[in-house]
């Protein structure tokens, strides 16, 4: 199968494997703090060293997220953020970049309100490659999966996921496996390197899909540690903190916002690229 046919996510992981390095997967919340700024960050991410990009879809009740991502979501909603808005960003991005994989990450209710079938059609048409639906475990995947042909359904595996449950989680998974490194919410604590070193082989034994580590990966050094045991590192909260730190008193973007976030991505990319040298 050609890389094109396997999809952008598989192609990107294959390319990185050939280069002998892991993937940096930065996250941004669509419309945080406004559509133009988040679009500029999205456009700049590949140049700053992002290998894949996760785009968060804002939701009023993000029960798996810590305060940093919650606040990003609130800013985004205030700026008019929605699922349709996130899809529009993807379409814009695809005008200049047909290779960097884009993954939408969010909660199920906005998808149900949009209509799962129409949502999946629009994802394909816009150039979305994969979906992470935080509150849709495999047992409830029927809500979206039947319509998701051509889209990678990225499943979460947690430290609490028992070996006996792994086959259920992996059944129907594609793209990559997202390992939630801590039992907790986003942006709170970090996993110990030893825990990751023990956890990742457990998943590898059960699947050939690439494994990315998220939740608690904050610094270039932690990103480097993550790709020493896994195939990718997802970084969200620390980049959002950088963004939040540049906003003015009213929560609006300033001149330095885009650049500060992209500098953060650049530093993480250096960590990831130097990890296996």
């Amino acid at each position: 199968m050609s890389d094109r046919m396997r999809g952008r996510i598989a192609a990107r992981f294959a390319k990185l494997k050939a280069e002998g390095r892991g993937a940096l997967m930065p996250f941004l919340e669509a419309y945080d703090p406004d559509p133009a700024t988040s679009m500029a960050i999205l456009r700049g991410m590949p140049g700053a060293g992002a290998d894949l990009i996760e785009i968060g879809v804002p939701f009023t009740d993000p029960a798996a997220d810590g305060p940093t991502v919650q606040k990003a979501g609130q800013r985004a909603l205030k700026a008019g953020g929605s699922l349709a808005g996130a899809l529009a960003m993807v379409r814009d991005f695809r005008r200049d970049d047909d290779e960097t994989p884009l993954v939408l990450m969010g909660y199920l209710n906005p998808i149900l309100a949009y209509g799962p079938e129409r949502f999946c059609q629009d994802c394909r048409a816009s150039g979305v490659d994969g979906l992470i639906i935080v509150d849709m475990p495999p047992e409830e995947a029927d809500e979206v999966q039947p319509f998701a042909e051509g889209l990678d359904m990225i499943r979460l595996v947690a430290p609490t996921t028992l070996d006996s449950r792994l086959p259920i989680v992996l059944n129907g998974a594609s793209g990559f496996i997202y390992y939630v490194a801590i039992t907790g919410i986003t942006g709170t604590r970090s996993a110990e390197a030893a825990d990751l070193a023990a956890a990742i082989p457990r998943i590898r034994a059960a699947t050939d899909l690439p494994v990315a580590i998220g939740f608690g990966v904050r610094t270039p050094a932690q990103a480097a540690e993550a790709v020493q045991v896994a195939d990718g590192a997802v970084v969200a909260s620390s980049l959002i903190e950088i963004l939040a730190g540049t906003l003015d008193a009213e929560g609006r973007a300033t001149k330095g916002t885009v650049r500060a976030v992209l500098d953060g991505v650049r530093a993480l990319a250096e960590g990831v690229r130097g990890a296996r040298e």
Binding site: A63, E139, E140, R155, A158, P159, T161, T183, G184
Partner: peptide, 10 residues
């Protein structure tokens, strides 16, 4: 149903 994050499923 059971619409929770994987961490809570167990």
């Amino acid at each position: 149903g059971r619409f929770v994050a994987e961490t809570l499923m167990p």
